[in-house]
């Protein structure tokens, strides 16, 4: 059996900008594969190449055994795609769009009506099905977009940041749906995300992408284990930052942290916490906040890139006392 997704040396340039810089990818049948990376990492560009919307500048890719450039039409018949920006027409109703999609895929009317109703109820849009999509909320549009991607029961499903902008309930519902499709039908799923938790929870295997390259690839647990020590994060009085850093580096290597914070890989783990606190106290450092976390995918990302993914777009949190 051929691999559902296979890419070799995939490159895409936009003028001088190299958006995707040589990606090798092999996703196995029935896998949920996560593509984790910050804004501008090249996730969407990769998805657009794999789904035949963009042609690669170099390299090759096969989806369901078909070449994405020379056999684009075959690829389109077996994939389902929900792009980052929900691709829907505001003038039509949800049901009309599903019907149109079914005709375009050559699904007989009898089957498409049944399947359309089932999909609408599964994504929670039965009540809104006959309303124009222009009146839908952002979350409803995303859910309709997912239904559109599923109407022809695709073998390989591409979801580009499927939960960005969804509320927590809708996010959980989408995770459930992905698990169900994968579990019941063995649908292979490639999803991109900026959320560590999503990659961790949903994907059997992930690739961390940054600057157009895959910097780590593997099972989330294995990647986290490779980091080793847990991360100790410390907030101190801004005047004490340098002094605190001097003390902390005796307990483990410094790790990237948000500005105004310090982080180290605490060798020896939680058992040494008391020792750290005493040492900081002895140095006269005022502690505002302290936390110890088992290695996370963020630590994996930080170790690979020297930057943090978590809270990358948020402003630094105000310093809080206690914890």
């Amino acid at each position: 059996m051929t691999e559902p997704i296979l890419a070799e040396g995939l490159v895409r340039k936009f003028g001088d900008l190299v958006a995707v810089d040589g990606i090798d990818l092999c996703v196995a049948q029935g896998e949920v594969f996560g593509f984790l990376g910050p804004n501008g990492a090249g996730k969407s560009t990769t998805v657009r190449m794999l789904t035949t919307l963009l042609s690669p500048s170099a390299g090759t890719a096969r989806v369901a055994g078909y070449d994405v450039v020379t056999q684009a039409a075959e690829v389109r018949r077996v994939i389902g795609v929900a792009l980052q920006d929900a691709a829907i027409d505001p003038i039509m109703t949800g049901r009309e769009l599903l019907k149109l999609q079914a005709v375009l895929h050559g699904i007989p009317r009898r089957i498409s009506r049944e399947r359309g109703d089932e999909l609408l109820s599964r994504v929670g849009l039965s009540a809104a099905a006959d309303r124009r999509v222009g009146t839908y909320s952002g979350g409803m549009r995303r859910r309709l977009d997912l239904a559109l991607a599923l109407i022809h029961e695709p073998r390989v499903l591409f979801l580009d940041e499927p939960t960005t902008g969804l509320d927590p309930t809708s996010r959980m519902a989408l995770w459930e749906e992905v698990r169900r499709l994968n579990g019941e039908f063995g649908t292979t799923v490639l999803l991109t995300t900026q959320y560590l938790e999503e990659a961790d929870q949903l994907a059997g295997r992930i690739a961390i992408i940054d600057g157009g390259r895959i910097v780590r690839q593997g099972e989330p647990e294995a990647l986290k284990d490779a980091v080793g020590s847990p991360t100790l994060r410390v907030d101190v009085d801004p005047d004490h930052l340098t002094r605190a850093a001097e003390v902390l580096q005796k307990f483990g290597e410094i790790r990237p942290a948000r500005s105004g914070r310090l982080a180290i890989g605490l060798e020896g783990g939680a058992a040494r916490l008391a020792e750290v606190v005493r040492a900081l106290d002895a140095a006269g450092v005022v502690l505002n906040h302290m936390e110890l976390d088992a290695p996370s995918l963020d630590d994996v990302f930080a170790e690979a890139t020297g930057r943090r993914l978590e809270g990358a777009e948020e402003p630094p949190a105000p310093v809080e006392v206690g914890g």
Binding site: M92, L100, H152, E153, F185, G186
Partner: peptide, 26 residues
């Protein structure tokens, strides 16, 4: 869903669907 894809869609049915959508949209 590993079953074979649906029969090759008819170009005429597709064109009619697109035409219908255009007219409705206008």
């Amino acid at each position: 869903m590993t079953a074979a894809a649906h029969p090759r869609p008819s170009a005429v049915a597709q064109a009619v669907a697109i035409a219908g959508r255009s007219v409705k949209g206008v």
